[in-house]
Design a binder for these strands. Structure first.
Length: 203
DNA sequence: AGTGGGATCTGT
DNA sequence: CAGATCCCACTA
């Protein structure tokens, strides 16, 4: 696998969310608009949700909202939270197994024009949170249930060679901890983030 | 048909 | 730490 190739191999995501979540760190999420404009961010924080997990939206029943989580890997799952923010997930694992990885933070290098006026300190943390990154990339529920492949409004790209090399050399390390903002399943260590990143939602 | 709480974020 | 704000899953 070479750098910057798009992740069209959905089988790569057809594994338990707890395996996929750390592997998504360093990959890029790319938003492509009809006019050709793109906004991209490097994934620096993720959380896994899956079977037997009381914090998972599909823990109780298959419902209209969580339907896409039961589908094949490599699809988007977007939902509205607290009436005003959206959260973006990558659906994982085999068809019929409800699971997903919540993307919690992105490092956005090329900040869109409309955010150019804000202070440097805030600008580096523009997408440091699941609701914030959806605001920056203009992700809402209309983008739920679509494949994350080439030519789509949202797509994933693999780690750059540079990032992968840094991981292997130990220059970049990953931290695994418990998840944030939930009231059940609070002891499961299913949150991962890039150790030296300044763009994670919390430490 | 009504309702309580939610995988959040911002400003005080 | 309160408030914003809306959808939906659950109860009846």
């Amino acid at each position: 696998m070479s750098a910057n190739t798009q992740i069209v191999e959905s089988f790569w995501l057809a594994r338990p969310s707890t395996s996929v979540a750390p592997d998504l760190l360093g990959c890029s999420l790319v938003r492509q608009f009809p006019d050709g404009e793109t906004i991209r961010g490097i994934i620096v924080e993720t959380e896994a949700y899956g079977p037997g997990d009381p914090a998972c939206h599909a823990y109780r029943q298959r419902t209209p909202r969580n339907e896409v989580m039961f589908g094949p890997a490599g699809m988007s799952y977007v939902y509205l939270i607290y009436g005003m923010y959206h959260c973006f997930n990558v659906v994982t694992d085999a068809e019929g197994v409800a699971s997903a990885v919540l993307i919690r933070a992105l490092q956005v290098d090329a900040v869109p024009q409309e955010f150019a006026g804000i202070p440097d300190k805030k600008r580096s943390r523009l997408a440091a949170g699941p609701g914030k990154l959806c605001k920056v990339l203009k992700i809402d529920r209309t983008l739920s249930g679509f494949p994350l492949g080439a030519g789509q409004p949202l797509r994933l790209e693999h780690r750059s060679d540079r990032f992968q090399q840094a991981v292997e050399e130990g220059t970049i390390n990953f931290v695994q901890t418990t998840r944030i903002g939930i009231s059940q399943g609070i002891d499961l260590p299913w949150r991962w983030y890039v150790g030296n990143s300044t763009a994670v939602s919390q430490l």
